[in-house]
Simulated scan of single mutants.
Amino acid sequence: MKIKATLERIPGGMMVVPLILAAILNTVAPDLLRIGNFTQALFVDGAGTLIALFLLCTGAQINLKTVGVSLGKGATLLTVKWIVGAAFGMLAYVFAGENGLWLGLAPIAIIAAMTNSNGGLYIAVVGQYGNKTDRAAYSLLALNDGPFFTMVALAIFGAMGFVDGLFSLTAFIAVLLPIVVGMVLGNLDEEMRKFLDQGSSMLIPFFAFALGMGIDFAKIIEGGIPGILLGVATTFITGTAGYFAFKAFNWNPIAGAAEGSTAGNAVATPAAIAAANAGFASMVDVATVQVAASTVTTAILLPIYIGFLVKRLEGKGVTLPDDYQTESERHASA
């Protein structure tokens, strides 16, 4: 039975298939794997640990000469994602009706969903289609987790004042440290670099499954059509913006498109905003379910969109990720 070969014939199959299977299982039988011990630790609660190990293995492949490239890619994605989300949030405030909604969407839901990305999905996509600098870019992308950039957007166009305590330096370092440890090991010992390289691709289906166990299809129904549309817009608008931004720099555009998602922790952003400014309290409930619907929608739609973009590039004779390697990466793989 050729399971691996079958998965590889599906665009992003190593990520998409385990994620969707887990999401279906979590929706129809959420407690089936939540039985404690090793089973729950691996298949349900293991996403964070597995992604951390993936980042360490990836960090080991980074040559110190390419660190600047990784930071540049991370900063570009962070900027593009925020500008697009903030711009649509501004439109929502300008054209909102008397009920405070635009096209049925709460403006804070738009900003929260479109400026915050699912790091696990990004890692899964670039783990299959990206190179070492694309993966290391995640060290900066961790900055858009949580309500910080949503608050910045609201502050800039006067919806509220800037609120302290929304950015945690400790949390940022906690994301960065596994990459740094791997990078140190890989640059000190070539054999260790080769050893850890084996872990990168092997971990993808396992943390994809664990990510899927956090998806509940019922959230799509609860968020309604506006929430689904928010997820569709997040994938196609922010993902496409990232695609063309990376293409403009002659970087791998698939890595740019991989930011077209909404993170699960963005669901808590409306409540965090309301806690800082009571003026948003009336929008918390509707915004929360809409962001939740966007989270689930993008988790399903982004891998499909990535598959379409990959096929399109391959049809033009582009080989991923080889045609987008930096000079140092080409030299290392030669």
Rank of each mutant, 00 (worst) to 15 (best):
V181H: 02
A174K: 10
T235V: 15
I110D: 12
V94D: 04
L101H: 08
I204A: 06
N187F: 06
P303R: 05
L32P: 00
I3L: 15
G119F: 09
A332V: 06
Q290D: 12
L21G: 09
P253D: 02
L229N: 09
F280I: 01
L203V: 09
V152Y: 02
E314D: 04
A106K: 11
I304D: 00
A171N: 13
F217Y: 10
Y324R: 14
F236W: 04
G307F: 11
L32I: 11
L176V: 15
F54M: 09
E314M: 09
G264S: 09
E191K: 13
M192Q: 10
S261Q: 15
F88M: 15
F95C: 00
M14H: 13
F148Q: 03
A258E: 06
A287M: 06
A263M: 13
G165K: 08
L211A: 00
N116C: 14
V126F: 01
F206N: 00
S261A: 11
K73T: 01
I51T: 09
V69L: 01
L77P: 02
A87C: 04
P107G: 11
A47S: 14
N116P: 03
I215H: 00
F308P: 07
I304V: 15
I221H: 07
M160L: 14
G212E: 10
E222C: 01
Y93N: 08
V289W: 08
G317V: 05
G186H: 06
G182I: 08
L25M: 12
N118M: 11
P226S: 14
V289R: 12
L211D: 02
G239L: 08
P303C: 04
A23D: 01
L309A: 05
F167K: 00
A86N: 06
F308G: 11
A263L: 09
I62E: 03
I20Q: 06
D285L: 07
K311W: 13
G130T: 11
V296C: 06
L203H: 03
A292I: 00
V152F: 05
L101F: 13
S328Q: 09
D31C: 02
E98Q: 12
V291G: 09
I304M: 03
T133N: 04
E191V: 03
I228W: 12
V80G: 02
A248F: 10
A233K: 02
G224C: 07
P253F: 11
L121Y: 05
T297Y: 00
G100K: 12
L25I: 13
D322W: 02
G165T: 05
A87R: 00
T262G: 13
M14Q: 15
L77I: 12
L77W: 08
V184P: 11
G48L: 11
G89C: 05
N26H: 04
A268S: 15
K81A: 12
V17L: 07
F38A: 13
L64T: 10
L229A: 10
F167I: 15
A87S: 14
N131D: 12
